[in-house]
Computed example of a mutant assay.
Amino acid sequence: MDVLSDAIAAMRTGRPHSSRTYRHAPWGIRFAPSNGAGFHVVLQGSAWLLPSGDGAEPVALGPGDVVFLSHGRGHGLASAPDVPLEDFALAPDGSWPKTEGDRAASTVLLCGAYQLDRARAHPLLAELPEVVHLPARVGEHASLRSAVELLGAELADAQPGSDAVIPALLDTMLLYILRAWWLREQAAGHATGWAAALRDPSVTAALYAIHDDPARPWTVEELGARAGLSRAAFARRFAASVGASPLAYLTWWRMTTAGRLLREEDLPLRQIAERAGYTSEFAFSRAFKREFGVAPGQYRRVRAAG
């Protein structure tokens, strides 16, 4: 698995939701804080993003602009910064409400939301800014634009298979948004932390090794060899970029993988322990409880009930 895809898969829970909406000025929507993340795309017309928080400035959005709010903060979206906001409400089944197409609408929006497990937020996502704004520019983010067009078409005119196509396109959009941000930070020379780590071939080689086979009893020497560095040089470089030592990150990723398996798979604890790199179910349970505060069986029951 590549690290970006793996980080998303580790946090994601449930099905993402989206809608294509048509608005007549003046209009304003208030989105409450949530545990997830969301995006807005202006397909036609214009809008203003109104971030929450002291000193947060409104962001003008034009046709083709994409904004991604990674930390679930409450925010507003409106035809103008001073328009009163109405609370956004989900449909009774928990999905986003649909609106009928209206050629006379002043603004057409494509909006979506992802459910994420904030308790195991991957540091790659935790480092994102509150608002990722990707303005529409000719020749940039072609893959993201294609995904937007495909998703917008599916939402505007559902066809056989749309129930499977739409979640897949939403997952694709999320990865394209993050990739676009990451490439922009690198091109501007602003890459730090994980954005810099994914640019460093030595650190990336070690991360790929960990993500590809977390059950392997990796040593710092072995990971350093994958990175093409001495043990000491690799350990310093890895910790400076990732924010944790190689073995600390390995343990964190093993436990994160185990948590996902407990949520999503009906596997015996012995198999989950093996996939997390533990030959003893007892040792795995002890390590899991130290990390999550509850035993694996209790974690599985609570997540199944919730």
Rank of each mutant, 00 (worst) to 15 (best):
A89Q: 14
R184G: 03
A119D: 15
V132K: 12
G101H: 02
P63A: 15
L125V: 08
S146V: 12
W96M: 07
F88W: 09
A276R: 09
L262N: 13
D266G: 15
A188F: 03
D93A: 08
E281C: 04
T219N: 02
G228R: 07
R226F: 04
K289N: 06
G228L: 01
L4Q: 12
D213E: 14
D157Y: 04
F292R: 07
A205S: 10
A158E: 12
A156Y: 13
A191T: 05
A235I: 03
E86C: 07
S285W: 02
L198P: 04
A153H: 03
V138A: 15
V66N: 06
H141Y: 09
Y208V: 12
Q186K: 04
V108A: 01
T204H: 04
V3Q: 10
F292Y: 14
W96K: 01
V132F: 02
G112R: 14
E86V: 04
H122K: 10
E100V: 03
L69P: 04
W252Y: 11
A258T: 12
L61H: 07
D171F: 02
A188E: 05
P160W: 01
A153W: 08
K289S: 12
R199F: 02
A209T: 11
P135M: 15
A142V: 06
L267F: 09
L269F: 07
T257N: 03
P167L: 06
P123A: 01
G224D: 03
A244T: 13
L134Q: 04
F292N: 08
T13E: 09
W194V: 14
T219F: 03
H24V: 00
Y249Q: 02
V66Q: 11
A60D: 10
W181T: 01
W252L: 08
W252E: 15
D117Y: 10
A233H: 06
F234G: 10
A239E: 10
P84R: 01
R184S: 10
A164I: 03
A225I: 09
R263K: 11
L151Q: 10
A215N: 14
Y208T: 14
G297H: 11
S162W: 05
T219Y: 11
L269T: 10
P296N: 13
H211W: 11
I272L: 07
G139T: 01
R137I: 14
L261R: 05
V59E: 05
H122T: 12
A187F: 06
A104S: 09
E291F: 15
V138C: 15
T256D: 11
L128I: 13
D54Y: 04
G193A: 15
